[in-house]
């Protein structure tokens, strides 16, 4: 996987999937849900997010419901990578499954201000704050996850393997 570089949005601890996309949009098409991402937590986000931005968050990012439209909506609005101190496991799996890179890094909160530029080197599991030169190590992704991300998601893996129906 390449190095990802992008402008940072900062979030705190325990950002739940209801806060990413509220339950009332659970059955809506993605074109609709992306208008409501972080609606109550960060109302300006949907208007100001740009293609290639990066999220830096605290503990337990993506806790709550297993709704896959949470990471899917973040990917659809242009988020290229999420760095967090820790992730809720279902969100983490879902993000990998849809091809959105996520990476855990202990101590990442406080190392970035909103608007800084972050650089994530997956092969070296290294995160750099390009704005101030600060850097820290991240938890390496397993080969299984890299394969899924490189393919563009688990459905693409399935397509490559003939849809599982040989």
């Amino acid at each position: 996987m390449d190095v990802i570089e992008g402008r940072v949005w900062v979030f705190g601890d325990n950002v739940d999937t209801d806060a990413i996309v509220a339950g009332e949009y659970l059955d809506a098409p993605i074109e609709e849900t992306i208008k409501h991402v972080f609606a109550s937590l960060k109302p300006d986000f949907v208007n100001e997010v740009r293609q290639g931005d990066v999220i830096v968050a605290g503990k337990n990012f993506g806790c709550g419901s297993s709704r896959e439209n949470a990471p899917a909506s973040l990917k659809a609005v242009g988020i290229k990578c999420i760095i967090a101190e820790s992730f809720a496991r279902i969100f983490f799996r879902n993000a990998i499954a849809i091809g959105l890179p996520v990476i855990s890094a202990l101590g990442v909160p406080g190392r970035f201000q909103e608007g800084d530029t972050a650089s994530i080197d997956f092969s070296r599991s290294m995160i750099v704050n390009v704005t101030d030169g600060d850097s820290l190590h991240a938890e390496p992704l397993a080969d299984e996850m890299i394969e899924i991300l490189d393919s563009g998601g688990i459905l693409e893996v399935l397509r490559r393997h003939g849809g599982g129906n040989q």
Binding site: S66, E68, A97, G153, I154, L158
Partner: peptide, 14 residues
């Protein structure tokens, strides 16, 4: 444990 629908699609197929 819980998973998302893309992973469920993969798991059902394989």
């Amino acid at each position: 444990c819980g998973i998302g629908f893309s992973e469920m699609a993969y798991a059902l197929a394989t």
